[in-house]
Nucleic acid binder design. Structure first.
Length: 921
RNA sequence: GGGCGAUUAGCUCAGUUGGUUAGAGCGCCGGUCUCACAUACCGGAGGCCACUGGUUCAAAUCCAGUAUCGCCCACCA
């Protein structure tokens, strides 16, 4: 019973072969009627435009690790994949393509045509990420892959919108919003990103009128001055008491604006007076409301100055700034220009500086949901790992703000609000001079409730207008924020609003694995929508995985050339090694500096992936060794060796490893999982057990040979199952090749996870084997230090104190001989070694290696002296400690006793070392 | 401006509730192509655990402060 393996593991052929096999057998399918406990995860849907990056890679290495583990443990395991339509990002991508290839923008081709192009784009590229995930080995139920614009999913979105509307949370209102002049849409607060810019603070003089003093105001955005409709000072500011109620003249536009008293103005700042531009600053908007100041919008939705900007109309907002500053300077009204670094909100998707504008939009009041969600979190119903993220979530909920839901783009879920063309006529304003017919047909109009538009929220278009009996309707032109649809992900993907079998069986899901960046944007909103739509939590645990940084702790970014394509790693080192490297670095830390050299977005090498590759190859070769030594092996007649020390030891180590792996998987300490497996397979199994097995394999006792063969196979087979969730491909290759019983599973994917190994734990064996290892290492050190040629066979003499029985040493002696390349190991009491011997002390045992003619006594003396110095230090320290009355009095008795024993032991060791030294001096 | 995290060997990181000589991998030095593996084997060197105080018989570990780096939140002109 032998099998053949190549000299090295070849990832490419294995990956292709086994993934196909797994999919054909349907191992990843999850059945809602299975008679097993369920375990379910929905993945965070990547953007449909997305390409796999390292963030995905670590996320999915973790997903698949957990999912494969649970599947082997006997759960009916669902991992549901999918993609997000990613409204702005996707539309942006296709628009950029349109501009680059045809020089057209979205308005040139219109709504329908653009949507057609995006759909075509999605059909062509939308599945790319699925193929990339397969390359990593992800064992997901691809039959269930969902897209946020699937028909059933759209239904869920409309249903949810209607439901929230019925709760009275959704409203149309005029508010200060974040406008992206590049994308020409509103975005939510969460989609803005503050960036520190080196700005300036311009101090400008506004001349007083009718006895009012001149006012100097400061601004970081002088161009907004054109829209100023007031100046505010603090009501208690004595300097300005007389000025309140008077007016100043706005330079360049020659407009008289009032000085108002408002507590927003900070007397400590500059002159104490602040300019007020209600249309272009959230604070100023609030002041404007309080004092009824007029709104003058001088910056348009395209970032270009409006006709209200007078002479500056038509200029880009930044060009205008420059020109305006120049003119102010010329007019002698520019008092000062100060350097002023400050944070400016940008659109996270396109990087454009946000323009705050008052606008009518759809909003959702989040107060009720936030309150409910808060108590769910503070009740501990959802476990956050690490748990501090739960506190952050609660804090965020405490400061919840209304959610701007509508987007002025076309790719997405169109808002299910309808307007009767008859009675809403005045509030439906065609864009760009279109006729009403055309504007309505294309959805190119602006809705103004203020001007009389009356929205009716319905999933279906209404029949008769309840107000006027009209029958013609137009749907709201806006689409919903992408995050509105993804907020429904865990239940919408399982069939909601239908009460499906899958929903009943797999929901709530067990685990949500996510990055830090979307904890509020997405994760918390899923909790909120689930509480409302399902009256339950969407997942029991939120696992926040580390962020992958470059080697030197910088952001990984394609534009910086520090991007790293995970598939390049797969290409270089294989999928298993890539997973290994990611998981090995996913410990308690929240940032992983990924150990790879990258040049111009191309990976040159990665130390950790190399480690993974080497480890895979090591295991592969261990299996190869086993395969080469199975001559005459028959699993039916071979008995598991359980009396030999090495056998008892390796089973005990395996049992420890299983316990460690399970524990660390339960607590998501992936780097510990890797380390446990690595140590067991490489250190215990290969370095020690295989080496020891060679003796029995090559010996002349058939029974011993059979039992060690059985152990070699069985231990390896079990360890492969433990390793499978980390390195699925390599383990499957080996597992398939290993001889197994007839009732073995079809694949390691569905093989049973090892369990109940506690009985194999054997402290005595571990202690004895530990002694063997110490002695062997000591002898090897002597060999190495004395430059004993590898071919030279040596004798090891163990000298025991009289109170120690020789029995146990009789059995370990042959192991020592074998491992140090010796010819024999002798045991005796108070042995007097030849004077030309190397020596070492292991616990109570003196170890001698006679080296007549080889030993360099000078080297040996130095070695012993160094060792003595170490123990002298230890003994001195312990003496001091035990002489300290406070220690003896206060420390627990067992600690004191332990220290006493150590002192005795170290003193003995020191004496032995001294004797050895004297012998050769 | 608030909050949080990190700081341990040249590098990347472990170090569980305070209690043996602080560990691993890579890198480095020396020796091996020893019949599974040179993607390997054997041995070795290398640490004032960021700094300063404190608590304790005992601190990498607990507390306070400082420094550096990073993240999150925040409308201060």
């Amino acid at each position: 019973m032998t099998f053949e393996l190549d000299k090295t593991y070849d990832p490419k052929s294995a990956e292709e072969k086994w993934y196909t096999f797994w999919e054909e057998r349907g191992f990843f399918h999850a059945d809602p009627n299975a008679a097993k406990p369920a375990y379910s995860i929905t993945i965070p849907p990547p953007n449909v435009t997305g390409e796999l990056h390292m963030g995905h890679a670590i996320q999915h290495a973790i997903h698949d690790l957990i999912v494969r583990w649970k599947r082997m443990q006997g759960y009916e395991t669902l991992c549901l994949p999918g993609t997000d339509h990613a409204g702005i990002a996707t539309q942006m991508k296709v628009e950029q393509q349109l501009a680059a290839e045809e020089g057209l923008n979205r308005y040139d081709i219109g709504r329908e045509a653009l949507l057609e192009r995006i759909h075509a784009w999605r059909d062509k590229y939308g599945d790319a990420i699925y193929h990339q995930l397969r390359k990593l080995g992800s064992s997901y139920d691809w039959r269930r892959a969902r897209f946020t614009l699937d028909d059933q999913y759209v239904e869920a979105v409309l249903k949810a919108f209607e439901r929230f509307q019925e709760q009275g949370w959704i409203y149309r209102g005029r508010r200060m919003i974040n406008w992206c002049p590049e994308c020409r849409t509103v975005i939510s607060d969460l989609e803005t990103e503050e960036r520190e810019l080196d700005g300036h603070l311009w101090h400008i003089r506004y001349p007083g009128i009718d006895g009012s003093p001149d006012v100097v105001v400061a601004t970081t955005r002088p161009e907004t001055m054109l829209g100023d409709t007031g100046v505010a000072v603090h009501p208690n500011d004595e300097r300005w008491r007389e000025a309140v109620g008077r007016q100043v003249r706005l330079p360049l536009v020659d407009r008289a604006i009032p000085i108002v008293a408002d507590e927003y103005a900070d007397p400590e700042m500059g002159s104490g007076a602040v300019k007020v531009t209600p249309c272009h600053d959230p604070n100023d908007y609030a002041i404007g409301e309080r004092h009824n100041l007029p709104h003058i919008q001088v910056i348009g939705f395209d970032g270009v100055m409006t006709k209200e900007a007078g002479a500056f109309a038509g200029m880009d907002r930044y060009a205008c700034r420059k020109e305006l500053v120049a003119q102010l300077e010329q007019a002698g009204l520019l008092v000062e220009i100060a350097e002023h670094p400050h944070a400016v909100p940008h659109h996270d998707k396109c990087g454009t500086v946000i323009e705050p504008l008052p606008m009518e939009q759809w909003f959702m009041n989040m107060e009720d949901l936030a309150a409910k969600t808060r108590s769910v979190l503070t009740d501990g119903q959802i476990d956050y790992v690490p748990d501090r993220f739960c506190n952050y979530a609660v804090e965020w909920l405490d400061n919840i703000r209304d959610w701007a839901l509508s987007r002025q783009i076309w790719w997405g879920h169109r808002i299910p609000a309808w307007y009767c063309t008859q009675c809403s006529e005045d509030g439906l304003i065609p864009m760009g001079g279109l006729t009403r017919e055309k504007a309505f047909a294309e959805g190119s109009f602006r809705v103004s409730v203020a001007d009389g538009a009356k929205p009716h929220v319905r999933v279906q278009q209404p029949e008769l207008c309840p107000d006027c009996g009209g029958t013609e309707w137009v749907q709201d032109p806006d689409v919903l924020d992408t995050w509105f649809s993804s907020a429904l992900w865990p239940f919408a993907t399982l069939g909601w609003p239908e009460e499906t079998e899958s929903l009943a069986y797999f929901y709530p899901t067990d685990l949500m694995i996510t990055g830090r960046d979307i904890l509020y944007l997405w994760v918390l909103r899923m909790v909120m929508t689930s509480i409302e739509c399902r009256q339950e939590i969407p997942f029991k645990t939120v696992l926040v995985h580390p962020t992958i940084l470059t080697k030197d702790g910088k952001r990984m970014s394609k534009s910086l050339g520090t991007g790293l394509n995970p598939l390049d790693l797969v290409e270089l080192y294989g999928a298993d090694a890539t997973r290994f490297s990611l998981l090995a670095q996913a410990g308690a830390v929240q940032d992983v500096r990924f150990d790879a050299e990258v040049e111009n977005n191309v990976v040159q090498s990665s130390t950790s992936a190399e480690m993974g590759r080497n480890f895979g190859n090591k295991v592969w070769n261990a299996a190869r060794f086993v395969s080469m030594n199975l001559e005459g092996y028959d699993p039916d007649i071979a008995e598991r060796g359980q009396t030999d020390l090495a056998d008892r030891w390796i089973w005990s180590r395996l049992a420890h490893t299983l316990r460690e792996v399970d524990e660390r998987l339960e607590t998501f300490r992936f780097s510990d999982v890797i380390r446990a497996l690595y140590d067991f397979l490489w250190r215990d199994y290969c370095d020690w057990y295989l080496e020891l097995a060679k003796g029995r394999l090559q010996g002349d006792q058939p029974q011993a040979r059979l039992s060690v063969q059985r152990n070699l196979v069985e231990i390896l087979e079990t360890a492969l199952r433990l390793l499978h969730p980390v390195m699925p491909f390599m383990t499957e290759s080996l597992w398939q090749a290993l001889p197994k019983g007839n009732d073995a599973a079809e694949s390691i994917v569905v093989a049973e996870w090892p369990r109940d190994m506690e009985a194999c734990l054997d402290e005595d064996a571990e202690r004895s084997m530990g002694r063997v290892q110490e002695i062997v290492t000591a002898v090897r050190t002597i060999r190495s230090e004395m430059n004993v040629p590898p071919a030279t066979r040596i004798t090891v003499m163990l000298s025991l104190p009289t109170e120690v029985a020789t029995g146990p040493f009789e059995s370990i002696a042959p192991l020592i001989t074998q491992l140090v390349r010796g010819n024999q190991t002798t045991i005796g009491y108070d042995v007097e070694p030849p004077s030309a011997s190397g020596s070492a002390v292991v616990g109570q045992i003196n170890v001698y290696v006679p080296l007549e003619g080889i030993i360099d006594l000078g080297v040996e003396r130095a070695r012993l002296q160094k060792e003595m110095a170490k123990f002298e230090g230890l003994v001195k320290g312990l003496n001091g400690k035990l002489a300290n009355e406070k220690f003896v009095a206060n420390a627990p008795a067992e600690v004191v006793e332990k220290e006493r024993q150590r002192l005795v032991e170290y003193s003995d060791t020191l004496n032995s070392l001294r004797e050895s030294l004297e012998r050769i001096s």
